[in-house]
Simulated scan of single mutants.
Amino acid sequence: MTSPTIVLDQLASSADVTPSRLQRLAECWAEVTNAGGAAGFPFPPVELARVRPVLDALVDSLAPATSRLLTASVKGELAGWLNVRRDPFALIAHWGTVHHVQTRTALRGQGVGAALMHEVRRIARDEMGLEQLHLAARGGEGLEDFYGRLGWKEAGRWPGALRLSAGDGRDEILMLLAPL
């Protein structure tokens, strides 16, 4: 099977996000969450009415220096997306954090997530002037293996930090990519 052609697009201001694109981002987020993905909403199912205000706030915070969305499309359809942010506080302004990494369920295993992660590394280094990236991944999903194949290193864990249901106590895995 051949890999699909993945088209990446960067959104650096709320003006870059059309209403139809906003709808597709929200649908993707709900789909990924409801399939058990660790993309920011802990308790599926999640409805669009719950996703939209969170997505609206994220889009409103977009700014070239501090927050960008990166999207991946296959055959003109949204295949996945992520958000990269930096804190403007001088003490930590040299690193950024990757949030909400997600790939549509039907396209998993076809390189969409890897393409997003390679491109966010380039953007962070070449366009945002960052020296390292951080992310937090949900334990028990094999995510540390995915990120590890892309050069990320586990920097630590918060044992039992995430509770997705009664009696659950998954680790939050802290990952680092440095140098970029």
Rank of each mutant, 00 (worst) to 15 (best):
T105D: 11
G76K: 06
L11A: 10
L150S: 09
L176K: 07
Q132H: 00
L135F: 02
A72Y: 05
V51L: 05
G160Y: 01
L135Y: 01
A137V: 14
G129D: 01
M1E: 06
A136H: 10
A30H: 07
T18G: 05
P64E: 06
G167C: 07
L162V: 13
S67Q: 14
F89S: 11
G139V: 08
S13R: 05
A90P: 14
Q23I: 06
V101G: 13
G96C: 05
M128R: 02
L130W: 00
R163D: 01
L55E: 03
G142C: 12
V51S: 04
H134T: 04
I173D: 09
M1N: 02
R50V: 07
S73T: 14
H118C: 08
A65G: 04
H134Q: 09
L25V: 10
D171R: 06
M128A: 07
E127A: 12
S13H: 07
R157C: 06
A106C: 10
Q110G: 08
D16M: 05
R52Y: 00
D145Y: 10
P42V: 00
P42T: 00
G169P: 04
E27I: 05
R86I: 01
G40E: 07
R52G: 00
L150T: 08
H118R: 15
T97R: 10
E154K: 05
M1Y: 00
L162A: 13
L143R: 13
V17A: 06
R122N: 11
Q102V: 12
V112K: 12
R104P: 10
V46E: 14
R86E: 01
D126H: 03
I6V: 15
A155I: 04
P88R: 04
L162M: 14
E119M: 03
A12L: 04
L164G: 13
T66C: 04
E131F: 01
A35F: 00
P4W: 06
A65W: 04
W152C: 08
G169T: 03
D145V: 15
D60C: 11
E119Q: 13
G142V: 13
R122Q: 14
P88S: 07
G148N: 11
L8K: 03
L70D: 08
T2N: 10
L135H: 01
E141D: 14
W95C: 11
G40T: 08
Q10Y: 02
L69R: 00
M128H: 01
A15K: 10
G109E: 12
V120Q: 09
M128P: 01
V7A: 14
P42F: 09
R170Q: 15
H100M: 15
A137P: 09
A90W: 13
V84G: 01
W29A: 10
A15R: 13
P42H: 07
A35I: 03
N34S: 06
T5M: 04
A65M: 09
V120W: 07
V74G: 12
V32A: 15
R104M: 06
T71A: 08
G129W: 02
M175D: 04
V32Q: 08
A79G: 02
T105I: 11
P88I: 08
L116K: 12
V46R: 10
V17P: 02
